[in-house]
Design a binder for these strands. Sequence first.
DNA 1: GAGTTGACGTTATAATATAACACCCGATTT
DNA 2: AAATCGGGTGTTATATTATAACGTCAACTC
Lengths: 168, 168
Amino acid sequence: MNTPVEASPTALPPSEHDHQKCVSTALGTAEHLCVVRGVQLTPIRHQVLELIWESHKAVKAYELLDRIKPLQSAAKPATIYRALDFLIEQGLIHRVESLNAFVGCSSSGHQHEQLLLICKHCHEVEERPATAVMQALSQEFDQAGFIVHSKAIEIHGICVKCVALGDD
Amino acid sequence: MNTPVEASPTALPPSEHDHQKCVSTALGTAEHLCVVRGVQLTPIRHQVLELIWESHKAVKAYELLDRIKPLQSAAKPATIYRALDFLIEQGLIHRVESLNAFVGCSSSGHQHEQLLLICKHCHEVEERPATAVMQALSQEFDQAGFIVHSKAIEIHGICVKCVALGDD
DNA sequence: GAGTTGACGTTATAATATAACACCCGATTT
DNA sequence: AAATCGGGTGTTATATTATAACGTCAACTC
């Protein structure tokens, strides 16, 4: 339902990875989880999720708004923010706090909270479970007596692909 | 130079810690570092830093703007944002990305990047060096081949004082 | 004393996000 | 079938956060 995806010059990362697989896996998982949970992945929500998954870059809300307008000419900021709220609640996307932007979550349904590696050069965001980090964090919370509700662990720098290209 | 500090009902944390000492240490360190570095801790920058240190809560930029107006009637958004940019560059404050707010840094001059524990109940922000976490993070970056520029590690939940009060 | 630099004043506007209320539609109840 | 209820969306307005652009001034430099 979005045939010209591969035509977009910025949609695909420069590497050789099969991005269509990323997209279909993410959308399939989302559809499945929403059915299981009895929540509605409405057309708008589905479109927003698809738009977010056009790349591994974090996307701004108003950029999504511009991009959804051809499909939903009535779209307004609230349209996007409501869809984003839903997708976040369901753990289908991450809000990248340090960018005020949004990126797809590859591990919806299991361990949503991950380390985000954000490349300043190509702007892609890599999720990593980072279990050793999470364990060390848990110990830190225990020591501090702190009850965790949510975590944002966002690292800015240069990713391995861009380092290889000498771009840092 | 800000005598009515202890009169403000929201300025001091509910605990019995000596906040005047926090403030004087922070301002003293800031003054010293700026001299050493040959940068100017101008009156405006000093006032903004003082206002931020009125509590351990993260403060919004426009809240700072309101609060500095009695002292700097010409203050505009740029006044505050420029001072904040300076203080962040010098490692004297943290920007709390997940709140769009700012909090004093207790460890200016050494190890600025810390774990921030943000209490949803009292809104205080606790900095922790969390060396085990930082080590685990370094290993993760090495594995990923990622070159780090900056880190934002922000945890939301209930702090030990509020847990003790049964507020979660 | 002309040029440069850094800090600040000032105006305008961009970018991000939410509030509030109306409407529709499908499901449930009566 | 009418009533009602809830979730999702449409729509308007506005709040909040942040930056751009340009001018002035004072200190320092050559």
